[in-house]
């Protein structure tokens, strides 16, 4: 990758990584939609509060994914920036928070 003639990454790694973030966002969308469905079905105040929290965490994940995708795109043909551990930890925490909300809904 150092030679200027081989600038193009033949494996399209940044693009594949971008799509992986999109897929993961979609998975979290499914969980958030199920939370909203539960709230609409039960029509309890607690359920709505939990669904709102789930949407918040989904939004958080969306923002994280979007920022990572922007960072990957901003590199252009150069070296894309590495994923920061803090960024990965924040994405993980969003997933865990969704699970906690689901547990609160069940119990």
């Amino acid at each position: 990758m150092s030679a200027p003639t081989s600038r193009r990454d033949p494996g399209l790694q940044p693009e594949r990584t971008r799509l992986a973030w999109r897929r993961t966002t979609l998975s979290s969308t499914v969980a958030a939609v199920l939370a909203v469905k539960a709230a609409l079905y039960d029509r309890a105040a607690g359920g709505f509060a939990i669904a709102a929290l789930c949407c918040l965490f989904w939004l958080g994940f969306l923002v994280l994914a979007h920022r990572r995708i922007r960072a990957l795109a901003s590199a252009g043909a150069g070296r894309p920036p590495l994923l920061a551990p803090r960024h990965a930890a924040a994405a993980t925490l969003c997933a865990i928070a969704l699970a906690v909300c689901a547990a609160a809904l069940v119990l």
């Binding site: 897929r23 993961t24 998975s27 979290s28 499914v30 969980a31 199920l34 939370a35 539960a38 997933a95 969704l98 699970a99 689901a102 547990a103 809904l105 069940v106």
Partner: peptide, 11 residues
């Protein structure tokens, strides 16, 4: 994603 799918399964 696997984790989120399991969480979705829990819901």
């Amino acid at each position: 994603r696997t984790a989120l799918a399991l969480i979705g399964g829990g819901f």
